[in-house]
Design a protein around this nucleic acid. Structure first.
Length: 103
DNA sequence: TATTTGACGATTT
DNA sequence: CAAATCGCCAAAT
């Protein structure tokens, strides 16, 4: 119980619809501000894709995962737009707008 | 069982 | 201002 991965999973689930979050912030929420790496890796394994909308998680620049996201950035981009999030051609989102829920 | 690496981020040099 | 290094934890080899 209380595994690291579990906490990441819970925080990501807690992300409001139409908003995004960064790996670093999730790490901060679980109590390890420097475990952003582990957060990303935890989502990489994605133990529960049904409840873990990885497409809502971006890096601190608001950029989507460049390597891969469940099939391609295009899909992620569409999912984000589907939630009402504007995604630039670069695959970046305005953290000033979509991250204000934490502030 | 031990070592290496991996969707990142902050700090230090 | 830029580059390099440290920190975090788990999974794969």
């Amino acid at each position: 119980m209380s595994s690291f991965n579990q906490r990441v999973y819970e925080v990501v689930k807690n992300i409001p619809k139409g908003k995004v979050c960064t790996y670093g912030y999730i790490a901060l929420m679980i109590g390890s501000p420097r475990a952003s790496r582990v957060v990303g890796y935890a989502l990489h394994r994605n133990p529960d894709p049904q409840n873990i909308p990885c497409h809502r998680v971006v890096n601190r620049h608001g950029r989507l995962a460049p390597s891969f996201a469940f099939g391609g950035m295009e899909i992620q981009k569409q999912l984000l737009e589907h939630e009402g999030i504007k995604v630039r051609d670069d695959g970046t989102v305005d953290l000033s707008i979509y991250m204000d829920w934490v502030k």
